[in-house]
Simulated assay, not measured.
Amino acid sequence: MKKRYDPPLTTNAQDPLYRVDKGVAGAQHQLDTAMDAKRLHTNQNLAHEVIKEARAALKRAEHARELKIKELAQKAAEMRAAGK
């Protein structure tokens, strides 16, 4: 089951979150591929290592997305404060 993101992942290349969302989508795809490969591999230890690395990459990508959202919110708040 895929995680739902708030706000949803963007596909608009002009959106400020596009690069981070693209990283999250890539990491999710890498994890899905690793899970599929686990079913086919006879070497389960290797499959577990690949899955562990893919989960770590997804966690890093999601953390980067959270930081970018906070950064954008802070910039918006500064712009509103400067506009008053």
Rank of each mutant, 00 (worst) to 15 (best):
Q74G: 00
Q30A: 15
K68V: 03
E62M: 02
L31I: 11
G26T: 07
A47I: 05
A57T: 13
V50D: 02
N43A: 01
Q74H: 10
M35N: 12
M79Y: 13
V20Y: 10
L17T: 15
G26I: 04
A77C: 01
L40A: 11
R80D: 05
A64Y: 04
K59S: 06
L31N: 07
D36G: 07
H29M: 10
K52F: 05
L46A: 11
Q44C: 03
K52P: 02
D36W: 13
N43K: 07
K68T: 09
P16M: 05
R55H: 03
Q74D: 12
M79G: 01
L40C: 02
H29G: 11
A54C: 06
T42D: 12
L72W: 08
I69S: 00
A54M: 06
V24C: 09
T42V: 14
A47R: 10
A47G: 08
A25N: 08
K68M: 08
H41T: 15
A47T: 06
V50Y: 03
D32S: 15
H41W: 15
Q30E: 12
A73M: 02
L40H: 11
E49W: 02
D36M: 08
K38S: 08
M35S: 05
N43F: 05
A37I: 03
A73K: 05
A34V: 04
Y18C: 00
V50R: 05
K70D: 09
R39C: 05
D36H: 11
A34F: 04
E71L: 08
G23F: 10
K75Y: 07
K70W: 03
A56R: 09
E53T: 08
A47Q: 05
E53G: 05
N45W: 13
K59Y: 09
E49H: 06
R39N: 10
Q30I: 03
E49G: 06
K22F: 14
E62P: 02
K59G: 03
R55S: 02
A73Q: 11
L67M: 07
K59C: 04
T33L: 07
L17P: 02
K59H: 12
R39K: 11
K68I: 01
D36V: 04
H41E: 10
N43Q: 07
Q30S: 12
Q30N: 12
H41G: 07
R39I: 12
T42S: 15
E66R: 11
L67D: 06
Y18M: 00
P16R: 12
I51L: 03
Q74M: 03
A57K: 15
V24T: 14
L31K: 07
R65V: 02
A37Q: 13
H41R: 12
A77K: 15
Y18N: 03
L31M: 14
A77S: 10
P16C: 04
D36E: 14
K59I: 04
H29S: 12
E66W: 09
E78K: 07
L72M: 06
E49C: 00
L46Q: 13
N43M: 01
A77G: 01
A54T: 09
A54K: 04
Q28I: 01
H29N: 15
H29I: 12
D32L: 06
K75M: 02
Y18V: 04
A56M: 06
L46R: 11
M79T: 13
D21K: 02
M79N: 10
N45A: 11
K75F: 03
A56Y: 13
K38R: 14
T33N: 10
Y18A: 05
A76W: 12
A64M: 06
A25T: 15
I51G: 04
K22V: 09
